[in-house]
Computed example of a mutant assay.
Amino acid sequence: MKRLTILCITFMTVWLLAAVTPASAENEEEDVKTEDVTLTDEQKKELDAMYQEYFAVHKDIINKYVEFGIMDQEKAEKKISFLDKHYEKLKENGFVMKWDDKKHKKFRDQDKKTSDE
């Protein structure tokens, strides 16, 4: 229960900070290349612990859905497998998010076009 409370408070804080951030800061962030960012071992350990806690809670929620009959076991296993793969990919990338993903590029381009008009 303590982990869930800490996790909820963390996400609410991040959400509030993102909502208050001015639009000009978003444009500046797009120019930052995440490929050049490297985290220290201490930062990686901190993010690793937070992600492990986040994924553990997420998996617990999925298992509760199975227990309550909302989701079948096959779908739950697929979701948990996706979470495991996502965690491994984050770990491989040194916990630096890859925002320049191709599948999201078209949406960023559309947003730029609408903001320029």
Rank of each mutant, 00 (worst) to 15 (best):
D101M: 04
A18V: 06
K75V: 08
K2R: 15
K106D: 15
I61R: 15
K91C: 08
Q43V: 04
K106I: 15
K113T: 09
V96S: 09
K59Q: 06
V57Q: 09
E74H: 05
T21P: 10
Q110P: 14
A76S: 10
M1H: 07
W15Q: 04
I62F: 02
T38E: 08
K33I: 02
V14T: 11
L90E: 01
F55H: 06
E53N: 09
M71H: 04
Q110M: 11
Y65R: 12
A19M: 12
H86I: 05
E29W: 08
A49T: 06
W99G: 02
T21N: 09
E67Q: 02
A18T: 10
K103E: 11
F68Y: 04
D60L: 02
G94S: 00
K64Y: 15
K85D: 00
A25W: 09
L16A: 10
V57M: 07
K2S: 14
K102M: 05
Y87P: 03
T38S: 09
Q52G: 04
E42P: 11
V96F: 01
A49N: 11
D116W: 13
K112Y: 11
K85P: 02
D116Y: 10
K59S: 06
E74W: 01
E42F: 13
E42N: 14
D48N: 01
Y65K: 11
K105T: 13
H86Y: 14
D48L: 00
I80N: 07
D60S: 05
H86Q: 12
E28C: 03
N63W: 08
L4M: 09
E92D: 14
I70Q: 13
E53H: 05
K106C: 14
D31S: 09
A76Y: 09
T5Q: 06
K2P: 00
N93T: 04
L16P: 01
I61S: 14
T114V: 14
S115V: 07
T114Q: 15
S81M: 09
Q43L: 00
I70K: 15
K79Y: 07
K75T: 14
K85G: 04
E30H: 03
D31A: 11
I6Q: 12
M50T: 05
I62V: 07
E92L: 07
E29M: 12
I6C: 13
V37N: 06
D101E: 13
K113P: 14
E42H: 13
Y54Q: 06
D109I: 14
D116P: 02
R108S: 13
A25S: 09
F107H: 08
S81F: 12
M50C: 10
K106P: 01
K59D: 03
V57H: 07
T38M: 07
D116M: 14
D48S: 02
E53K: 08
D111G: 07
Y51S: 03
D116S: 10
Q52V: 09
K102S: 12
D36E: 10
D111W: 08
E53S: 07
E77D: 09
E77F: 06
T38Y: 03
K106F: 15
D111I: 08
E117I: 13
T34S: 01
D111S: 06
K85H: 03
A25P: 12
S81R: 05
D116K: 15
E26G: 11
K78C: 10
P22F: 03
I62E: 04
D31F: 08
F95N: 02
L47N: 05
A56G: 10
W99L: 06
